[in-house]
Design a protein around this nucleic acid. Sequence first.
DNA 1: ATGAAAGCGCTAACAT
DNA 2: ATGTTAGCGCTTTCAT
Lengths: 338, 338
Amino acid sequence: MSENSFRNSGIAAVAALAGVSTGTVSKALNGTGQLRESTRLRVRAAAEEVGWLPNGAARSIRSGRTYTVGVITTDSYGRFSIPILRGVEDALGLGEMLCFLCDSRDDPIREQHYVRTLLARQVDGIIAVGRKVDPRTPLGENLPVPVIYAFAPSTDPQDCSVTADERGGARRAVDHLVKTGRRRIAHITGLENHASAALRAEGFLAAMASQGLEPVGDVWYGSWSEEWGHNGVRALLANHPDVDAIFCGSDQIARGAAYELERHGRAIPDDVALIGVDNWSPFTDGYRPHLSSVDLNLSTIGRRAGEALLSALDGAPRPGTQIVDCDLIVRESSGPRG
Amino acid sequence: MSENSFRNSGIAAVAALAGVSTGTVSKALNGTGQLRESTRLRVRAAAEEVGWLPNGAARSIRSGRTYTVGVITTDSYGRFSIPILRGVEDALGLGEMLCFLCDSRDDPIREQHYVRTLLARQVDGIIAVGRKVDPRTPLGENLPVPVIYAFAPSTDPQDCSVTADERGGARRAVDHLVKTGRRRIAHITGLENHASAALRAEGFLAAMASQGLEPVGDVWYGSWSEEWGHNGVRALLANHPDVDAIFCGSDQIARGAAYELERHGRAIPDDVALIGVDNWSPFTDGYRPHLSSVDLNLSTIGRRAGEALLSALDGAPRPGTQIVDCDLIVRESSGPRG
DNA sequence: ATGAAAGCGCTAACAT
DNA sequence: ATGTTAGCGCTTTCAT
């Protein structure tokens, strides 16, 4: 099978076999210049036969472009960067461009190291992927290639960032709960010093106010764990037994909350409705009831970041922070009750 | 800050500024040849000043090496490939080599496309990462660069594969349960047609036999979900109320099992001990009791794969399938009782 | 100790 | 329609 035996010979070998010059081979293989169709075919056949593959390095050295983007993540390739990466890859067009993946492990030294390494590899651009929405310091100043910040925006408003609409997600959750007849709504969420928690709480409080409703208790800050879902619900029920809906800061919290509500004999969604955030299926669909959840649309964030990069490479940078809408995925836990 | 203004000028600019030839610059910058120390320093200073960075493409074109490896994953960068990638990156030495990450999405067409693309980019080698231990067909024949299969081994025993010791993991779990005094042990696991489930069941049965114990019920196959943990335990207790330990095929199953045992008034670990697989913290540490779990050591698998690749590049390929040991992480759910 | 020049694989401008 | 050649940025002989 010549199909799979890549000998990687170089354009000269092809030229020799086809009985033409290297220039002709180049034209034939790239569809440039004017060649007799027969020549083109003969050259193509020869290339196939010697198992020729283009040499990316040689091409890059001339064009100055590598069709490669560097992705630096602070997330140890975690739960957030994965869907984002998928989106980036989609935008970059199925293998036309490739991604160098670098895990900075949240270490500024490693990060700088990767920036230099990537620039030395002549990447066409860099995408910095965060694991939270807290703004981050820029990768550097006057970098010779465009940089896009995904999820965690840059602190410099002139940079191009793409991030999630945390406030809007909270609003959607509240509006849905209210529309389905809930009025006594609480918000149990994660660490107070995370921008995600703060923004969601802000959105929650604003949405409640605009609905003319009082939140049930203050915002219940805790941690991002299933365990806090249990403890939060325990505290909540002790003080506000009349609660009829809880907007949770994550699906893990919501899952814990669901189990704890069950222990207290509260039916979901009839007695208490539940909505989480992340739309992370191991937790939303892990058990009954399946959990309603705010999807941050991370893949879309990645795709937009990829598109922004392509646009910048095209000479049309898009400075400023772009905000991607959230979606509310409604499942059993916030169902019916009109 | 010249530190951060990368102008990327090329060796000629450095030469001009330092008042030497390009050859000398090359030697100075690479520490080769014989140069007066003063010259070396002068050149280095000049390079710094013009913000010079090496041009990887130009280097590759000469050396034939790119210090780049292609990683093709079938996992949509999922839960398994992430820790593996981390290990690969560790082995490849903190940014000396970089990884192209390609998501084949389990589509053979996409996979072949990526193979060609990677070869065209002159990668030094390829690592194929799977999301399960089921053997997979090789990437291709006679590829011009070494290929290592991680997690999912190649069906060709001549290829170099690194995979997990699923059987051994099950054995460790059983041995630990027996050593701490449990005798009535059941195995609730995932899909019967997954190699992981089959191998773990095999290991479980073998370990039980060698301990002179009868498994409680047949192996309880189901799905890889928390929900199956609930249903499996329900079925198990209905038929075998005397069970005193359960080895679960995943942490999600174990978490579901834990909740269901609680509903039935069985204390963990006193009445029933529990061990999962994956050591996936959102589930093992999400709530009480923290779950004991078999860690497949995916990072180690990645690291070994990276090392095997380096070894192959060094002219010392390691054909055959290498099996990486599992570790049992003991937590509350399989604690005490002598 | 340093410089000059060839050449890596390829493309494009310029001959023919 | 095809061939010839210069040159991309760098390393490496080979001269000096």
